[in-house]
Design a protein around this nucleic acid. Sequence first.
DNA 1: ACCGGGTTTGCACTGCTGTGCACTATAGGG
DNA 2: CCCTATAGTGCACAGCAGTGCAAACCCGGT
Lengths: 336, 336
Amino acid sequence: MSHRQESSFVSAQQVADLAGVSRSAVSRTFTKGASVSEATRERVLKAAETLGYQVNQLARGMMNDRSNIVCIVTADIDAPYHGQFIEALTRHLQAAGKVAMLVNTSGGSGIESAMRLTLQYRAEASIVLSGQPDRRIIENCIRNGQRVIVVNRDEVADGTRNINVSNRAAAREAFAMLHRAGCTRLAVIMSDVGTPSLRARETAFVEAARGKGLAVTTVRAGPTSYETGCLAARQLFGGPTPPDGAFCVTDLLAFGFMDAARRDFGLSIPADLCVVGFDDIMQSKWAAYDLTTFRQPIEEIAAYMVSQTDRAPDQTTSTPRRFLTERVWRSTVRPG
Amino acid sequence: MSHRQESSFVSAQQVADLAGVSRSAVSRTFTKGASVSEATRERVLKAAETLGYQVNQLARGMMNDRSNIVCIVTADIDAPYHGQFIEALTRHLQAAGKVAMLVNTSGGSGIESAMRLTLQYRAEASIVLSGQPDRRIIENCIRNGQRVIVVNRDEVADGTRNINVSNRAAAREAFAMLHRAGCTRLAVIMSDVGTPSLRARETAFVEAARGKGLAVTTVRAGPTSYETGCLAARQLFGGPTPPDGAFCVTDLLAFGFMDAARRDFGLSIPADLCVVGFDDIMQSKWAAYDLTTFRQPIEEIAAYMVSQTDRAPDQTTSTPRRFLTERVWRSTVRPG
DNA sequence: ACCGGGTTTGCACTGCTGTGCACTATAGGG
DNA sequence: CCCTATAGTGCACAGCAGTGCAAACCCGGT
C-alpha cells in the first residue's frame, strides 16, 4: 500500500513490497558487483519492470557523492562551433555513463549564476566553453571538490584543467599562406570580445606579418558573428586601404566577410581576395564558401575533456594539454 | 568538526556549526517564505559566504519531489535548427528557475536509453525534439508523474503535451508561390527519415500540386543534411526531368540543393530554378543563400514548452497547441 | 511582576538509496 | 550425521535538506 501520491516516481521500497523482498535486495540488484542470488534478482527485475522502476540517481548521488552530472556552461549555443562541441561532449559523456547539464550564460543572468547552478546540482565537473569566470568563483568550485575544465584561458587557477589549441602556430601559418599567395595588404577580421584565444590568433598573425615588414589592419566590428563579418568587409572595402588578403579569427566571421565582399563589392575569391578562417565548422566545406581554414580537433578535445572529468587522485595543477590544429586547404586562397 | 573529506561539497550542517545555529536555521534562510530573524539570517549568510555553501538541489529535490530538472532529448544537436531550439529552451528554462539536462540520442544508445536517463534523474518533464519514442516508454514516463512534451507527433498518447506546426498550410503556400512564379516541373527534396512533420510537408505539397494537375517527383537521398541536398540535385539534374521549382522540406537540404545546382550544373537562382525552404534557420538569410522559406516561431514554441513543463493539476490530454509559420520572402523565388 | 500574543528556534521525522555488519540457510566434506 | 565455509539476506545507519510541532523567546500592556 503506497502512501505516496498516485502519479509520482516509483521507489525501491515499492518494488521490494511487490517482489516480497527487502529493499536492500532491490538496491543490490541494481548495484554492480553486489551479492544477490539469481532467484531474487529475477523476482526484483520482474517487479521493477512491472512498476516501471528506475534507480533514483539523485539519491544514489547523495550517497556516494558521485552525481555523474557534468555541467557545460557556455553562451551562444546556437553558434555552429558550439553546437558541434556540445554534440561531441554529450555523446562522450553519455558513453562514459554521465549526463550533461547545459547551462546557458546568454540569458542575462551571467556566468556567476551559472557556476552557482553547477555547485547546487553537485556536478562533478564544469566544462567552461565560453566566458571568463571570475577567479574567485573558480576557486570556490575547486574548494568544493569540483573539477573545472577550461579552454584557452591562459591564467591557470590552482586545480583547473586547462586545454590549449595551437592558436599562435596556426595564425603564423595563416600569414605564411597569404604571403605565399602574394597578398600584401593584409587584414585581420576580429571580434570585439577579448577572448584569449581570439586575441592570440590576432597578435600572432600581426607579429608574423611584421616580421616580413608588412602592416596589418585589424577590424573589430562587433561580436563573433556572421553580421560582424559583413560589417568588417564594408568598413574595409569602403575605406582607403582595401585588403587583398584577410585572416578571419573565426569561420563565422569569414562567411559574412566573404558574402559582403562578393555581393557588395563584386570581388571574386581567391582572384581578388584571399581568405583564411579558423575552426573548420560544418559550413566551411559548403560549396558556397569552400573555405580554407584550420580544423580544431573537436572530437579529440571533447574526448579528452570527458576523461578529465573523472575525479583524479591528485589535485595538483596539471600542465595544460595542447591540441594541434590541422590546415585544411580549400579554395579561398590562391595556391602559392 | 567535519568528518568529511577535505575537498568535498559544503553541507548545511557545516554552515550551521560555523554560524552557531541549528541546521534548521540554515535551511530556513535559503527557503523562500520561511521564518527567520534578520540577525540569524545574516549570520548564516555570512558563514555560507565564507564556506562557499550552495544549497544541494539534489537533496532538496528529493524532499519535495521537484528536481527542477527538465530533459531535452534529441539527436543531431549540431544541426542549426536544433541548436537554435536548444538555445531558446535553455534560456527560457533558466529564466523559470529550472535547468536543462541535454540527452543526446545520436550516440548509438538510442532513445529508450535516453528516456531511462530522464526517469533516473527524476526530471519533471521531458522535451522530445527528435526521434520517435516507443509508446510504452512514454506511458511509463507519464505513469511516473513526468510530463512529456512532443513536437509534431500525431499519435497522441494519454497525457503528452503535443505541439504542432502548420506544416500542411505552409507546404500548400509553398506550392502556390512556385506555381505563381511559373514553375511547372516540380520536385520535393525530402529526407529518408520518416518524421511526421517532414512527411506532412511533402504530402501536402504533392496534393496541392495534384489539385492543379501538376506532377511532383520526390527525392529521398539520405538523412536530413546538406550533403543529402547535394545528392538530390545531382540525381534530379542528371536525370531525364530536371525541375524548375523545388520545395525543400528543410533549409539545410535547400542549401545543399542550391549549391550543387549552381556549381555542378551552372544554374542560376531564381532565373532557372526557384527554391523554397522550411525553418528559416540562421543561415537562411546569409547572402550566399538568401532563401525564401517559412519561419518557425522557435522563441514562442520554446516559451510555450517551458510553460507546459510545470506540473499541472489535470492529467487529462490537452488538445495540441498549434503554431503558425510565417512566410519569409527572400530571393530564391521569382516574384509572381 | 505577570500575562498574553506573536515570532524564532530546535527537535525529530521524512524522502531515497548504498553498505557494513550480523545473521540465516545452504551445501559440501569428513 | 555433524561441522564449517560461504553465499544471501535484512537491519540499521549515513548522507542532505525541508517542515510540523512544541518549546523558548521577546515585546508590550496592565
